[in-house]
Amino acid sequence: MKPAAFDYRAPRTLEEALGLLREHQDEAKVLAGGQSLVPAMNFRLARPAVLVDIARVPGLDRIDLDDPGSVTVGARVRHLDLEHNTIPGPLGVLLARTGRWVGHYPIRVRGTFGGSLAHADPAAEWCALACALDAEIHCRSANGARVVEACDFFEQMAFTTCLAPDELLMGVRLPSLGDSWGVGMAEFARRWGDFAIVLAIAAVERDGDSVARARIALGGVAGGPVRAAHAEAALSGRAATPESVAAAAAAAAEEVDPTGDIHGSADYRRDLVRTMVTRALNQALA
């Protein structure tokens, strides 16, 4: 369990980092917290020729609250900083609630938000959250910057994104959810800290006793995070009742097409979708 040989580079500026990515393209891998990449290298499942460590690149570790309509989370913000964030309103609550579920404490100390998105594990909490909130993923290469909608960022193949080999994920812009929003997060894993068998993230905008808009994303049921569109439709514009929640959860279970593994068959996962969506929605509507 020793990695294959690689070069290690530690650029001190963004320009230098992007230059290295342009130079080495597919041969390079960006190292941030290293909580997924380093084990993959030790298993020799990942064999980058060059590791570009962005630890010293300035400006990637900030949570930017300046824009009233959104919060931008820098790529190198640690899971733990989101778990203990000071972001006001429902977004702060959702990030804190979700952050607790990311791996184990030592992983949350080192691992990063941007790293999790770029790694794109199908059961990763942050990927589902980004997808649920229609986050904007800010990418940059030596040739310029672009913004990708979260749901387009993740390919429906595990560990695959639209990030080009020479691109660096800079940060993620999340909508600051106003006080009319409620948020919920539910996850089932065999053990605390394991990757989810199924997880659900819900954000619901209330309009009196009814639901104006519902956003529901699921992890662990496909190659990447997915939005439960039928479930959202089943709830949006309806009264916020146990019946409408049950209908949305049933719709979510119906619309997913999970595959099984040793921790849970497809049918079990489908049942868990119903339960997790119910629990996330109940939190969001509480």
Partner: peptide
């Protein structure tokens, strides 16, 4: 250890 699940203190 992703697939061989030993209980932790939390379990």
């Amino acid at each position: 250890f992703m697939d061989y699940l030993m209980p932790t203190a939390a379990e």
